[in-house]
Amino acid sequence: MYPQLLAHVKRQVQLTPAEEHLLCETMELLKFNKKQIILEPGRHCKGEYFVLSGLLRQYYVNAKLNEQIVQFALENWWIADHDSIVNHVPAGTYIQTIEASEVLLLHNKDKGPLLEKIPKLETYFRLTMQRAFIASQRRIGFLFNQTDEERYRYFIGLFPDFVQRVPQYMLASYLGFTPQFLSRIRAKKAPQPPEGGVF
């Protein structure tokens, strides 16, 4: 049994003990070393990963060979290349561990049968995807409407512990500016961060 996963599911839907057992039995436990590539462009994404411990990132490499991070995933977050999964096409992104990590993999081939046996999980995954989509929309809005410094201050106000775990160049890539600019921002005294919200 995986208490972390079950606690996360319980925030949205209530499963019976038998359903909890089936869910955990369906997941595959995987352990990865630091900086290990889990997915790379050209390969099909095997499924959706739920992080038990550690930290992962999802990123593109552009024509100038610069990495552009589109998502981080730490404990109790899901991560996957959904374009690959939904459209049955090769992945366009990398997924890599930043720290040594333990994750649960829900294989694509197993998800459909699992949802047929536990229909309540349809609601869980729908709500999880809705929250992720909202967070993505807000991030895009912040990229367009906030200055680089405002965006950084807002982010560290929401995730102060997380910022300490991420290398500076990766944080800069995610927030849309250079590591040099981030160094200058961090050298300043931070103002009081805004309250609440999701980034």
Rank of each mutant, 00 (worst) to 15 (best):
M1A: 14
M1K: 09
Y2P: 00
Q4N: 15
A7P: 03
H8Q: 11
R11M: 12
V13P: 07
Q14L: 08
T16P: 05
P17A: 15
E20D: 14
L22R: 14
L22C: 10
T26Q: 15
L30H: 01
N33S: 14
I37Y: 10
I38N: 02
E40Y: 13
P41E: 10
G42V: 09
V51S: 03
Q58R: 01
Y59R: 02
V61I: 15
N62P: 08
K64I: 00
K64V: 02
K64A: 12
N66L: 08
V70G: 13
L74G: 06
A80T: 01
D81C: 08
S84A: 12
I85R: 02
V86L: 09
H88I: 07
H88A: 14
G92Y: 04
T97L: 00
T97M: 01
A100N: 06
L106C: 08
H107L: 12
N108T: 12
P113K: 04
L115P: 04
E116T: 09
K117M: 08
I118P: 05
K120F: 08
T123K: 13
T123R: 14
T123L: 14
Y124S: 09
F125C: 03
T128Q: 13
Q130R: 09
A135Q: 09
R139P: 04
L143N: 06
F144G: 04
N145Y: 05
N145E: 04
E150F: 06
R151F: 11
R151Q: 11
S173T: 03
S173I: 01
S173Y: 01
L175E: 03
L175R: 00
I185N: 02
R186A: 07
R186T: 12
A187N: 13
K188M: 12
A190G: 07
Q192G: 01
P194C: 08
P194Q: 13
G197V: 12
